[in-house]
Write a protein that binds this DNA or RNA. Structure first.
Length: 229
DNA sequence: GCCACCGGTGGC
DNA sequence: GCCACCGGTGGC
């Protein structure tokens, strides 16, 4: 009743129990649009917590999403992420869009918004692809031959639209994380409960915050793809 | 040309 | 039957 925009609903998955800090530190200097209360203060009702998410409070700190049985990621799409966006990297937002017309009116489409570039993805598959390659799967891409799986493409595709709606950094590398050459050893130490929950240390040196954030994302990708790790 | 939206398919 | 995903089209 008091809601003026029933169609758009942006929820934040910041309810991750013991995962990554919901609020990333904008150390990268990027213009992360801080969730200013006044910004989308259209309604201060359930802006923080998704309406659904039944049993998520039970998790204290065991692991993040841990679909022990049935590793989703073999066949094709369908039934990947039922109703938990815990697989989402920190900072990402989920937008539930309700269809207004048509035969499928009333259906809800989920869109995943990248926090920095503001890019929008339609499925978990696309998000994971983007996290790894740093770009969206080009449709007409003829040969995507690539020896190995190194994600060293520095962008350069014609997919750089920065004049329509969202502004984004000119060239943003996928992730500041070398999947092929991970650090020998990383010690994750629990930090203050108020801020970063975990801080990575390589050897005795603390990892930069910006790097840490990327690592968190990388970690999410890895754990999402390989639940066994 | 790009984006947003709807339709329809297909696995659970 | 439900739900997530992707394709395609229309609008801007």
């Amino acid at each position: 009743m008091s809601i003026s925009t029933p169609s758009d609903h942006v929820t934040q998955p910041g309810s991750i129990p013991g995962d990554f800090p919901p609020d990333p530190l904008l150390s990268t200097g990027s213009f992360i649009s801080s969730p200013t209360p006044a910004a989308d203060g259209a309604l201060g009702s359930s802006a923080t917590q998704p309406p659904v998410q039944g049993g998520s409070e039970a998790i204290g700190m065991s692991d993040q999403v841990n679909p022990s049985p049935a590793n989703s990621e073999s066949k094709s799409r369908k039934r990947s992420a039922p109703l938990d966006n815990s697989w989402l990297p920190p900072g990402w937002r989920v937008e539930d869009k309700v269809r207004a017309s048509g035969a499928t009116a009333g259906s809800v489409d989920k869109y995943y918004l990248e926090p920095i570039t503001g890019r929008k993805f339609r499925s978990r598959t696309e998000v994971l692809y983007y996290l790894e390659h740093g770009t969206t799967p080009k449709k007409g891409s003829k040969k995507a031959k690539n020896t190995g799986s190194s994600s060293d493409h520095l962008e350069g595709k014609g997919r750089n639209k920065s004049s329509r709606k969202v502004k984004e950094t000119p060239a943003l590398p996928p992730l500041n994380f070398d999947f092929e050459n991970p650090p020998e050893e990383v010690s994750w130490c629990m930090g203050n409960a108020g801020e970063e929950a975990w801080t990575p240390f390589v050897g005795e040196g603390k990892v930069q915050d910006s790097v840490r954030r990327d690592w968190c994302t990388a970690f999410t990708v890895i754990t999402t793809k390989n639940p066994s790790r």
